[in-house]
């Protein structure tokens, strides 16, 4: 039987999932939750789902047996409480990153899922982008040698709370998670600086590894920018939008446009989670891994505020 999915907060996210649904042979959307009934219905129609509700609570009341997995997209800011609710109802949880606004809240969700013996994935699509998968594969195949330096730029338009702290504890968690994933462990040093609309996080890993992640939310309207390079001891990989853009001439300075990577990342993410549910195993980008990234982000916020380095001591980060 196909794994049955429920999209929570579906109205504004349905379009991207509609693109992906036909590519998932072993999964199907059966329910959509949205506080606005007309939006819920429109999303359900586009996804081929038969059940709508205006809250997860109502969905559980009306049809708890009708679905297996809840999907909580990035736009939903009540992710941790929804994830707790779903886990307590015995539902597998795929949520956007960060899983929660604090590591304590995130660990609570991880523990709830563990107790309920349900799978938990907490990830942005960054890990699943074809470009980043290719970098990871090159590293795993030994082509790059030992990872030495990760550089990542991620720029977009202003959205929501935009202080440096907000950025570090929000979108930057995905970049931190990516760094931990590529280096294969937690950073031992954390230093961060920032300003309104911008943050840069500097991480040190064991054996001399290092990562620089900058996240800006100050671009004018239009495309965002994403660039990643990984320098290893015997090779390097450049997943770099600068080289992968097309040009538009319309008078004045030409513009560059992002060709994008389509729906491949979201598809890969869903496929991985559905497979993990079917196989009863821990998914890639697990909730526990997201907790680690949130912990590093919290250390980065402390660094932002104290203007000092934090070092990993035992399981926690302390001012150096």
């Amino acid at each position: 039987m196909a794994t049955r999915l429920a999209l929570i907060g579906g109205g504004e996210n349905a379009a991207s999932y509609t693109t992906v649904t036909p590519r998932l042979p072993n999964a199907a959307f059966v329910a959509v939750v949205d506080p606005q009934p007309d939006r819920a219905q429109a999303a359900a129609d586009s996804l081929g789902a038969s059940i709508t509700a205006n809250s997860l609570e109502k969905l559980l009341e009306r049809g708890a047996d009708a679905f297996d997995v809840v999907i909580i997209p990035e736009s939903n800011h009540a992710r941790s409480s929804l994830a707790l609710q779903a886990a307590e109802a015995g539902k597998h949880v795929l949520t956007a990153s960060p899983l929660a606004p604090s590591v304590e809240d995130a660990e609570r969700v991880v523990e709830a899922c563990r107790s309920a013996d349900v799978r938990l994935m907490a990830s942005s699509s960054l890990r699943f982008m074809p470009s980043h998968q290719a970098v990871k594969n090159a590293l795993a195949d030994g082509k790059l040698g030992e990872p030495g330096l990760l550089r990542m730029h991620r720029w977009s338009q202003p959205s929501g709370p935009n202080s440096a702290n907000d950025i570090v504890l929000g979108g930057a968690v995905a970049g931190i998670d990516l760094a931990i994933w590529l280096f294969g462990g937690s950073p031992t040093e954390v230093y961060a600086v920032g300003r309104s609309g911008y943050a840069q996080v500097h991480l040190g890993f064991p054996d001399g590894g290092m990562a620089l992640i900058d996240e800006a939310r100050t671009l004018p309207s239009g495309d965002g920018y994403l660039s990643l390079s990984l320098i290893g001891s015997s090779g390097a990989a450049y997943a770099d939008d600068h080289h992968n853009r097309n040009l538009v001439f319309q008078g004045g300075d030409p513009s560059a446009i992002d060709t994008g990577q389509g729906a491949a990342a979201l598809t890969a993410q869903l496929e991985e989670f559905v497979s993990a549910v079917e196989e009863g195993r821990e998914p890639a980008a697990s909730g526990a891994e997201n907790c680690t990234a949130i912990q590093v982000a919290e250390a980065a916020v402390t660094s932002l505020q104290s203007q000092q380095t934090l070092r990993l001591n035992g399981g926690s980060y302390e001012l150096a």
Partner: peptide, 13 residues
């Protein structure tokens, strides 16, 4: 603010 990444990364890279 700013950053610098610098290295003599080898001819293969």
């Amino acid at each position: 603010l700013g950053t610098l990444c610098i290295g003599r990364i080898g001819a293969a890279s």
